[in-house]
Design a protein around this nucleic acid. Structure first.
Lengths: 229, 229
DNA sequence: CGTGGGCTTGATAGTCCTCAAGTCGGGTGG
DNA sequence: CCACCCGACTTGAGGACTATCAAGCCCACG
């Protein structure tokens, strides 16, 4: 049953207000719930038909490796968002997914996606929109990495993750990323992230520490992040 | 009629081998063909319901601006690929699209996408897969930018654009990017692109000049680009 | 209390950018 | 046909930004 996670605070819940047929389809394809501690691999690049999940609580992130040393975090997944949509459509995972905080996941059968396209067009459309929204986020992060310096990139990411939480308190917003996550998401090193965070704090713009983001000067943060964010 | 562009060399043609209903749907939503010279804006960021195109000949690219100075090229579009799928699903263009070479485009009515989800599930699925493949390309480019130095990024892009052309001659492969396109796609400056190209050529790995890519040492190029490619 | 991982900081080096001048090539007008 | 012109490309010198490496710190945990 996926029913009981509906109604929670999910910005763009794909499974909200389904019609009866869609609902029974989803319920029939829901395998089970699972919980994971932080920093656990949920799916690994290269897996085939591995899984389709919806994040019901906690944060995850997906990333790509290139060669050995370095990983690029491509996107973060917040509650209500889907893991494995791309792979359900294309067959293989090209990226890995890992829990950032403790997470609760609902596992769905990957063929739900194909079935939705056959018999539940509304639901299929939601999947497609979800995929599009995800792609859009990646592109905007990529633009930040390609165009801005460390300060701008950090401002961009902070602002985006703040906004994605809808109802969060700007002065005490959940922000469970560690230095290394910031570094891997922004194409920088942990050491430089640290220096740049100091600057953001010293200039009275924002503070990221101990799992919380505090925005002290939203206007300035937006300016640093670029008009885009 | 879209029929006459089927059968050309299109790696992943979304409109190949449609069933009669899908075919009539597509034909009914095909507005007209248009041709553009290089470096013309096809759609601009911010447009709503602007357009859906299929590239029938030539190359285009899409890019995001952030603030004023800098643009990030996010992906290239080759013949057979679709422009505006994301926007058709989400309503607004977040990116701009511009012709790289002279292009021929077929303009389609954007509501073809929504209609496909309602009445032509096979076609809708193809759209979704196309979107997924596009997202995957963006993510791999982003990983290259975030993880590799200038030499690795150039190798990565050269290799990818070579592979996307399927039947191209490795020693004389179409490659219509100018220095500035490479720079904007890879998060570097034109000057540095130039120095790095010199190094690639001097080391006998590859040459990009006058619209052509020549790969002299494929193994080394792959190694530079990372195992990912 | 010891241990380990993440965080912090400094010194140093390398990559890449900026700016500016010069070259080349293709298109235009005389 | 030639001179001119403009944009793209090229190259160099200097400087900004970021990486690398290493050491010390702090806190959570066993």
């Amino acid at each position: 049953m996926l029913t009981h996670i509906r109604g929670e605070r999910h910005t763009q819940d794909v499974f909200r207000a389904l019609n009866p047929h869609e609902q029974s389809l989803v319920d029939g394809m829901t395998a089970r719930q699972l919980e994971l501690p932080p920093n656990r691999e949920i799916v690994s690049a290269g897996e085939v038909g591995a899984g389709l999940f919806i994040v019901s609580d906690g944060w995850a992130f997906r990333y790509c490796r290139i060669g050995a040393g370095c990983r690029q975090i491509v996107d973060f997944m917040l509650p209500g968002e889907i893991i494995g949509l791309q792979a359900a459509l294309l067959g293989v995972f090209e990226h890995s997914v890992r829990s950032l905080t403790p997470v609760k996941l609902m596992r769905l059968e990957p063929r739900l996606v194909g079935t939705a396209f056959e018999t539940a067009p509304e639901l299929a459309l939601r999947f497609a929109r979800h995929l599009g929204a995800e792609a859009r986020r990646v592109e905007s992060l990529m633009t930040a990495i390609g165009c801005r310096d460390a300060l701008g990139r950090l401002a961009f990411l902070a602002l985006n993750l703040y906004r994605r939480q809808g109802d969060a308190d700007p002065s005490n917003c959940p922000f469970p990323l560690r230095r290394q996550h910031l570094a891997d998401a922004l194409g920088l090193t942990g050491a430089h992230i640290n220096r740049t965070l100091n600057r953001l704090r010293r200039d009275g713009i924002a503070t990221m520490a101990r799992g919380k983001l505090a925005i002290h000067d939203l206007a300035k943060l937006q300016e640093l992040a670029g008009a885009s964010g």
